[in-house]
Amino acid sequence: MLSYQEADQKPTHLLNKGIKSGIPIAIGYVPIALTFGLIAKTTGLNLADTVGMSLFVYAGAAQFMALQMLAAGTTGVEIVLATFIINIRHFLMTASLSERLHEKSLLKRAFVAYGITDETFSVASLQKGEIKALYMAGLLLMAYGSWVVFSGLGFLIGAALPEVLKSSMSIALYAMFIGLIVPSLKKQRKVIALFSIAAVLSALFSLWLSSGWSIVLATVISCVGVEAMIYRKSKSVVGEKHHE
């Protein structure tokens, strides 16, 4: 008989767990990918370019921006540079996830890295325990699959989804983010601090900066700031004890 923990580590179990956690991401990507496909078509891309961009870039915000820039006649170099800047935030996310990924093989780590988006990162990070490559594969199957398939469908039948449903579905990813954070907010005051400081800063920065930069800056300042406060507090406690 397998112990509970061993059963938990079984390959099929890990994959299934990833697939299940990926369902809300797959739902959330539907309206965005459909819209992307539709706009790509009106921008003048063909079906192969549209699906190709979702396959090889796999980054929503950057892909929308690229369409806008293509329509405006911007050069390729500028588009690539802007893509790099908007996606720098993934550096921060992968660095954080890297700490928790229990996988030694470089190939598997490189594979997991390909699937990191705002959404897959959030879902994976907020689940308990160590993260395995197979779990990430299940997550990626749902997220990547949905993104690529619905980009293509958006190109082909973009206007098919009723406007009311498409508009309402645009809440999906935010609902998922909220669904992920609320249980942690209930448990830890530190999480409340990290969350609210980053939220306020991100709103503030968004008035001047692009969303990519405001997310990165708000996150870094909140993470370092909160940790520094805790560090100083723990030091002063030790200091006081020393004086006694």
Binding site: D118, I178, I181, F195, I215, T219, V226
Partner: peptide, 24 residues
């Protein structure tokens, strides 16, 4: 290491606010 562990909670704050109020 501690700062990196904080990232998910902070990044969710930055991803949700202000975006959820300006979806369209």
């Amino acid at each position: 290491q501690a700062v990196l562990t904080n990232v998910p909670y902070a990044v969710l704050g930055a991803l949700i606010i202000p975006s959820v109020f300006i979806i369209h």
